[in-house]
Design a protein around this nucleic acid. Sequence first.
DNA 1: CAGTGGTCTAGACCACGGT
DNA 2: CCGTGGTCTAGACCACTGG
Lengths: 233, 233
Amino acid sequence: MQEQKRTGFQDVRDEVLRRIEDRIWPQGALLPTELELATEFGCARATVNRALRELAERGIIDRKRKSGTRVAVAPVKQAKLEIAVMRQQIEEINATYRYALVKQQQIPAPSWLASQIGLQAGAQVLHLHCMHYADNRPFQFEERWINIDAVPQVVEADFSHTGPNEWLLAEVPFSNAEITLSAVAANAQLAEFLTSSPGAPLFQMERTTWFQQQPVTFVRMTFHPGYRMSTQY
Amino acid sequence: MQEQKRTGFQDVRDEVLRRIEDRIWPQGALLPTELELATEFGCARATVNRALRELAERGIIDRKRKSGTRVAVAPVKQAKLEIAVMRQQIEEINATYRYALVKQQQIPAPSWLASQIGLQAGAQVLHLHCMHYADNRPFQFEERWINIDAVPQVVEADFSHTGPNEWLLAEVPFSNAEITLSAVAANAQLAEFLTSSPGAPLFQMERTTWFQQQPVTFVRMTFHPGYRMSTQY
DNA sequence: CAGTGGTCTAGACCACGGT
DNA sequence: CCGTGGTCTAGACCACTGG
């Protein structure tokens, strides 16, 4: 009974990875060419190509025309941070999500914001303060600025029951963004909303979002004391 | 003069992306089949397949056999955190890197560590304290535990001039890991090494690393006050 | 059962970049 | 120049899954 399935790109990928892990091909070593590997594995070159391309995307190997394929020496590890909507993130830990709008006003962009995200000085922005709760305990304090020029319909939106993030995701999907993570000390406002003591260390994530080169929103999310963000690779 | 190049998968990918951004195909919409797109773009189905596969990997579209391809509704944004070696990270900001070994001892694994990374109680581990400086200013304090069973040769290693991370990368490449980010208050030790005031908020990254199911190392890296970690997507 | 994506093939041409 | 990876093609078969 031949259980031999045809050699797929995953087989090639895994076998190459195994040889690298087992130091059959040590760091910096030159791998056989795609053609040679295709012959060895008894498959088409395109199959080998796809396998190696995936490993290259993961940073496991470096590929260069003419020079060939080498085992990466100092691989830059890439961890994928999954950024989900708060509601989803909270419901994933089996907690009840609750949202509250704290404050909403239309103002001219403060100069720090204008320079932060690249706005005209004095452009009108919508400024929001929101709270996200998990099982009625403070989870995240959100301070957000939305560029009204970029999404004029925002002035009609109702943020009293749904967070601006969910609204924006529906209006301006697939934007690109820059994220900054840091640790900050709780000021009076944060301490109050997150029920921490003033000065307590809090985890903060800031995100600037653009859509087709145009700044859309800047958000500063501060999490409850003890919050930890995890990921794997 | 026809400047028409042959339609490549990038052309297809970008055009499909454009139509999604322009709401020609709104969220949840069903895209044409690969065959239809191939006909429209005048290329092979494999080319369309590769283009759509990339968009699917980015979370822009959802693909299912038989049902077809749809524009993702609530895309989970994926930010790639690039985890580089400290030396590299510091040199990238044009600062001079300096490393110092603070303390090194072999001990039985404390129980919290054993349970944290899945070790036998009492297994021998190498415990290290290190400092990383940028332009002679404290940049990161590193506290690390290495499972000696996983890398016996570690007891011979010399960490007085090179950090354990660089050594481990050379010995145990391409491992998988779990990362946790958080904000902590500086204790006396951290305050001393990072020249911060006690209680100051500090950004901390913890990482557990395995190699082929076996726990290798756990490291707690605490950064200087004001440190910010950035990424894009 | 039949439609749609998933993958493989064998061959081809191209583009980059050492020599 | 010319070897190596990058990509495309036209066709084929497979695998999952909705109806």
